[in-house]
Design a protein around this nucleic acid. Sequence first.
DNA 1: ATGGCCCGTAGAACGGGA
Length: 258
Amino acid sequence: MKLATWNVNSLKVRLPQLLDWLAADPVDVVCLQETKLTDERFPRDALAEAGYDAAFSGQPTYNGVAILTRAATVGSPLDVQIGNPRFDDEQKRIIAATVGDLRVVCVYVPNGQSVDSDKYVYKLAWLDAMIAWLGPQVSASSSFALAGDFNIAPEARDVHDPEQWKGQVLFTDAERERFRQLERLGLVDAFRLFEQPEKSYSWWDYRQLAFRRNRGLRIDHVMVSPALRSRVRACTIDREMRKREQPSDHAPVIAEID
DNA sequence: ATGGCCCGTAGAACGGGA
């Protein structure tokens, strides 16, 4: 089976691309971020027609997350949980579901804007609460995946210009330390289980021809528990999606799991 | 040195993204 995460930057705009992408090479579990849709406007029918069930949690204008499952292969998302019970948050950034024997947590981590912003303080507190909430789940769960837009580039090689980004939001020591804490829970970055091309990124700014110049960041991740790690056969970034007309600024990350 | 794009909500610019 395949599990993917993709920040679509508006599901309304990206729905045709999503359907086209799923029709061409079906992914069994899809974690979406920045749907930017209220639940009433979620395109549940169009996805059902394409063979996907969905669990979703949205709001107007900002944020919004969803987990899609290919009904014929993995069934429906079960035991759906919205948000982190340990963190009161109006922003819709977390949805979790059980798919087959796999527990999947889909996250849209706050961006943080800049280190001197209140949003950065919120980001770090949000991450601390997420780590505290996930800890017991990782140890108790046999196959567990944390997938989403982490808004953290974990290492220098995940940044096109580490000098330029040094101390900048998405690449500060404090954010990267939160990523290390997730690793200490036992989660591993599935992408780094395999040999990868140099300068592999998952996000490129819309401006300055950043994609063409490959000036990007790798901030979208699939992290897996020890039990799941042994079942992961590959992890790739689908750069082709970023080449399309009217692309999201993020490319999907896809893990292949036995 | 600055901002350069895209999206949603508006119904003009602006907040937010990263």
